[in-house]
Amino acid sequence: MTRISLTVNGEPRAVDIDSRVTVLDLLREHFGLTGAKKGCDRGQCGACTVLRDGRRVNSCLVLAVSADGSEIVSVEGLAGDSDLHPLQQSFLDHDAYQCGYCTPGQLCSAVGALAELAAGSPSVVTGEGSAPTLEPEEIRERMSGNLCRCAAYVNIVAAVYEAGRSA
């Protein structure tokens, strides 16, 4: 058992934890925050995506002990004090989900992707030497680490694009 302290959705937390526990299981099994999902537990599906210090990570690949001192935001914390984050509203409007199991990861990933775009960090589809712009192709590329077996992809891209445009 190791004692760690971290912030989860704005709330400071301290916990004694088995060093084998991942951030994903810390949230789900120890904090009762089951928004982040386990789709593969090995970094291959994105269902567990959360924001760690503002960047998106696969929480199944991060050991809780290595997240000591981190600020974690999961889907439950996206909206802050509002009812829904604009991306959450946009997902509803575009029916950008079916079973909903990949959705929390898609949403956290989309928040991260839009932030990366805004910060000007390029992707493989960004033109050589130019700054990336908000386009469906950029969104498709940047959201491709989040699998959706219901295959809501075209709606997800539309939802993220629209939320990004009105941001």
Partner: peptide
Amino acid sequence: MTRIEGPDKVRGSATYAYEYP
């Protein structure tokens, strides 16, 4: 019509089998 359980799904508050406390 928007999915009835949609708000729960996008908030992460829809409870799937493994998640009952």
